[in-house]
Write a protein that binds this DNA or RNA. Structure first.
Lengths: 189, 189
DNA sequence: TATTTCCTAGAACGATAGTTCTACCAAGCC
DNA sequence: GGCTTGGTAGAACTATCGTTCTAGGAAATA
């Protein structure tokens, strides 16, 4: 409907799909809703994306890159690894308070399709692994004995905060999580 | 197909629906699959459940009760609250190592439907709140100053472990989580 | 024997949604 | 002018799926 007519059609499709998929779920959104929201013809969509599945993949892969880029932007190379890890919870806190927050797109996608649609599930797994690796890189800069273990525990706190913020509507979950993480970082052997 | 013919039809339907919904997702399972798995006729299903939505609700409500009953069975009234809370992670550890583990049914359901199908989303929210209240009750038996805050933080660790165990295939997530929780309990003001 | 209850088998309806097809328009370029 | 490119509009095909309908069987009860 009210899509920016300035962008080329393909970009408008991607933008519309992303918003709708995240807001209302992948299976809940039909092609019709997407072309309506993007303001393009049905033919145009199928010209750029041969099937809905391809568009969904594109949505997830794009979001993986963009989300992590945004997430990591809260860290700085010159800061201590403790400071950087704690900063991630500031990112979460900002996210949770956004009007558009509707949980983790990948947890939701995995919930929609499970192992059955293995493509989508695998992308979700990769996303989670990618975040893990990003955090692991932060820990590697420290003199922590077991960075893998620490990263796993940090990731547990991060994922838990996301779920709580969404399903328990606890928008301050990042604050409580940050406290726990601080405790973890200070008491780490 | 190979359903116990001993149980009455309604029970077989519930059992089949539960297994299929949890294993493959709610939207992924059609009525046909359920009646096939339960070994009942289509008419029989519609006799007991006027619509799929009703059956889904039944599935979720039943699972909420059963899951929490199982979860709480790891605690004992005579034990200290610290011991009881840590025992919850033993429960999670057992769960994660089950062959049938496929994450939290309610996180998955919420991911499938989002706020759109508000009934299902609300049941998922209630489930999460119920667990929170169960844990809060454990904390109330202690002399902790701020039991609500502690409970929130414990819940973050629990939810995080579940997500990690599922989406990162980290079956030992409960062990790392238990360590974090121990740290939290020992350093609590 | 008649009747009710519980169940089965399978066709059929109706809506939705992904996908394809036909027809057409406007702009830029050779 | 003719051709390609990129787009629109909308009908139509196809499959799936939730749901309803018809017909009938088997066992218990009156």
């Amino acid at each position: 409907m009210a899509a920016d007519k300035l962008l080329p059609a393909k970009e408008r499709i991607i933008k519309a799909a992303e918003r709708l998929f995240y807001d209302e779920g992948i299976q809940a959104i039909g092609i019709d809703r997407i072309i309506q929201e993007a303001g393009v013809a049905l033919n145009t969509l199928y010209k750029y994306f041969p099937s809905k599945a391809v568009l969904v993949e594109r949505y997830l892969r794009d979001r993986d890159v963009r989300w992590r880029k945004w997430f990591n932007s809260y860290t700085r190379p010159e800061a201590t690894f403790k400071h950087n890890i704690l900063s991630l919870f500031d990112a979460l806190n900002d996210w949770f308070h956004e009007e558009t927050f509707r949980g983790c797109a990948f947890i939701n996608a995995a919930g929609e399709f499970g192992d059955t649609k293995s493509d989508i599930f695998e992308i979700s797994r990769e996303h989670k692994k990618n975040i893990y690796l990003d955090v692991l890189k932060l820990c590697h800069d420290s003199n922590v004995i077991n960075p893998e273990k620490l990263t796993r525990q940090v990731m547990i706190i991060i994922e838990g905060a996301i779920v709580r913020a969404y399903l328990n509507d606890d928008k301050d979950a990042a604050l409580w999580a940050k406290e726990v993480c601080l405790l973890l970082l200070e008491n780490y052997d």
